[in-house]
């Protein structure tokens, strides 16, 4: 029982101290999980983080579940995932309660009109960062990125369908590439 409480506490700290998720959580994991508790090694954490990025859902939650499971099995994983989401739940609920009450004040309206401009720039920066690892050749640009972006903008097709179709296309393209590589290797 004591170990589970430790897991809850450790991952609530991760959730509360990480701004923006992603890379920002790694220094905290290294300090607490590796050095203080010794639940996983540095290399294991990097592996978990890499895999968490490729799996559906929130990277930080997925990473926490990996670590919690390694230490205390399935219940440990669930405890770690839930604990790292808990601070968000509390903090955002309080903020939402306050902001929704004051949303019609001119000061709040003007502030958010300014903030929205900033949001555009943040999204552009996120796309540029993702671009480098996602668009690896012209196939992925012309047949996946461009059509998905256009279909999402101009049609009502659900992103779920676009994501599934893209995964299938990825497998098909890769098959063609393997096939070609094999043929050329055979010559």
């Amino acid at each position: 029982m004591k170990e589970y409480l430790k897991i809850l506490w450790a991952f609530m700290k991760v959730g509360a101290l990480t701004f923006g998720g992603g890379y920002a959580m790694l220094p905290i994991l290294q300090k607490d999980i590796v050095e203080r508790y010794g639940w996983a090694s540095e290399e294991e954490i990097m592996d978990y983080y890499a895999m968490a990025q490729c799996l559906p859902g929130i990277i930080m939650i997925n990473t926490s579940v990996f670590i919690g499971r390694k230490h205390k099995g399935t219940p440990g994983g669930i405890a770690a995932g839930a604990a790292s989401a808990l601070p968000s739940l509390v903090i955002i609920t309080i903020i939402a309660m306050c902001l929704n009450a004051f949303a019609d004040y001119p000061v709040v309206k003007n502030a958010f009109a300014g903030i929205r401009v900033c949001v555009v720039v943040l999204i552009v920066n996120a796309v540029v960062k993702l671009w480098k690892s996602a668009i690896v050749d012209w196939l992925s640009l012309v047949f996946i990125f461009a059509p998905v972006c256009a279909l999402s903008l101009f049609t009502k097709i659900s992103p779920v369908i676009l994501v599934v179709a893209a995964a299938v296309l990825g497998v098909v393209f890769s098959q063609i590439k393997w096939h070609r590589a094999k043929k050329e290797g055979g010559k």
Binding site: A134, V136, A146, V168, L169
Partner: peptide
């Protein structure tokens, strides 16, 4: 290989 560019396109 297909999912990453799709995700980027959606964002």
């Amino acid at each position: 290989y297909g999912l990453r560019p799709a995700s980027t396109g959606l964002i």
